[in-house]
Structure formats: structure tokens, C-alpha cells
Amino acid sequence: MRFSVLASGSTGNAFYVETERERLLVDAGLSGKQLEQLFADIDRHIEDITGVLVTHEHSDHIKGLGVIARKYCLPIYANEKTWRAMESLIGDIPSEQKFIFPTGSVRTFGDLDVESFGVSHDAAEPMFYVFHYEGKKLALITDTGYVSERVKGVIRHADVFVFESNHDVEMLRMGKYPWNIKRRILSDVGHVSNEDAGLALADVIGDKTKRIYLAHLSQDNNMKELARMTVAQTLERKGIIVGESFQLYDTDPARPTELISV
């Protein structure tokens, strides 16, 4: 199983995972042209995708979805509430390309099992995914106000985590956003802070965990170095040392991570 965080941040999100038989895209929150370039950057092609999984209907996750789905005849998978919320936003999609993927279920794509789970975010029915392949586990979770014990149970002991580390609380509090936006981000249906990411990760990192990618960083209320430092220090207070058995990695809103095997 190989993967790349194609883009991650408030301006657009896309995640790619492949096996010998399957090539899946999670979210398409950038323009069609940008997505094509991101795929080219990792030496892959959108027309080879076997399915697009959608997490929720916010524009930074579906901006280019309709365009690429129509252009390349891609099958799209989302839960019923997300379908209803995004249909008017992505334009007409032929019925044969529309599939229901219920929250809290497992769907098999060829040789890859994909487990969906709900999160706490201000969308119709947001959900993220764990990918299971030959005993390996890759967990993807962003866009959640907090990480519940139920979610921790689903993602625990993954080999790789792509994990939200959206903001530094003090940067957000002192920043330029209107108070109603700050309150939304800080709420239980907003986004996870750097410190809360570290606390949640401390509960789910396992012996097999090798890589953690900090994702969906705010461009206004966070910095890569600050996110890494805060998460590392929070983990260290829990007796978990970055660099001993696993590493922390950055993601970027405009550049994909290296295509890595799990």
C-alpha cells in the first residue's frame, strides 16, 4: 500500500492511496487543473483512479470533484447525507458513478478494505477512513473538533497516521478572524489544535506506528515548525519520544508528500 498527501490545508485537501489493484482518491478540494498537476508530481494519472471517497461537503474537500468525475468518469463514494448536501455544489453526476458508502461500515475495493468512521465537524455527516491492507493500517482523520474514544478505538495502532493539527490556540485567539469564526474553530465541531492533536495521538500510537503526518494546518493560525514542536512536546510529556520508533512529517497545501509504501 502506497500513499501521498497530495494537498492539505484550508485552501484544499486531497489524499491518494494505491495498492497493486486499486487507486483511490480521498477528496478533491482543489481545481481540476491543480489536481492533475499534483498527480503528475507523484508520477500518477487521474484517469487511473478506481474511485473517489468523499469525507464531507465543505468546498476545500470537493471543489474539483464534479469536474474530474465528469471528465474521467470516476465513481464517487459518500454517505447519503453528504450526497444530499453536495449534489447542488458539484453539478450533475451520472447515476452510474454515484455510490453510497455508509458511515461506520467497511467497503472492500479489490484488495483494499476501507473502514469509514464519523467525526465531530459542522457538516452534514462528516466521516474519515482507515485503510487496511495485508495487516497494515493507514488512518486518515482531519476536520474534527475533538477525537472521541470511539474514534480512537477505530484508528488506534495504525502504521501511519494522517492527523489534523489545525491551529495554535494562542495564534487563533490573537489573530484577525472574527470572533464567531474563532469560536467555531475552537468548538467541538471545529478543528483540532496542535496540543489536542498531541494528546489524542498519545492515546493511539502503537508499536507498529512509523509515520505521523500533521495535516490541515491553518495558514493564518499555525506554522509547520510550531505544529511539529507542540505535538512533539505534548507527546514527550506522555513519555512518547518522536524519533525513537516513529517520525513526524509535514504536509503542504500546494505540494504532495513523497509517495511512500506502508
Rank of each mutant, 00 (worst) to 15 (best):
M1K: 04
R2V: 00
G12P: 04
A14Q: 07
F15V: 06
Y16G: 04
V17G: 05
E20L: 09
E20K: 14
R23Y: 04
L25G: 04
V26M: 12
L30S: 04
G32C: 12
D41W: 00
G51M: 02
V52G: 06
H56R: 03
H56W: 04
E57Q: 14
I62T: 03
L65K: 04
V67G: 00
V67R: 08
C73M: 13
N79M: 05
K81V: 09
R84Y: 11
M86G: 06
S88G: 13
L89V: 11
E96F: 13
F99V: 09
T103L: 13
T103S: 15
G104T: 08
S105E: 14
S105I: 03
D111Q: 10
L112W: 10
D122I: 06
E125S: 01
M127Q: 15
V130P: 07
F131L: 12
I141D: 03
I141C: 13
D143R: 02
G145I: 04
G145Q: 02
S148Q: 12
R150M: 14
A158L: 05
F161H: 03
F163S: 12
E164A: 04
N166F: 02
H167S: 00
P178V: 01
P178M: 02
I185W: 00
V192R: 02
E195H: 07
A197T: 13
L199V: 14
L201A: 09
D203G: 12
V204K: 02
D207Y: 11
K210H: 13
M223F: 07
E225Q: 09
R228Y: 05
A232L: 02
G239I: 09
I241Y: 10
G243N: 12
E244T: 10
S245L: 05
A254T: 13
T257D: 01
E258F: 13
L259M: 15
V262Q: 06
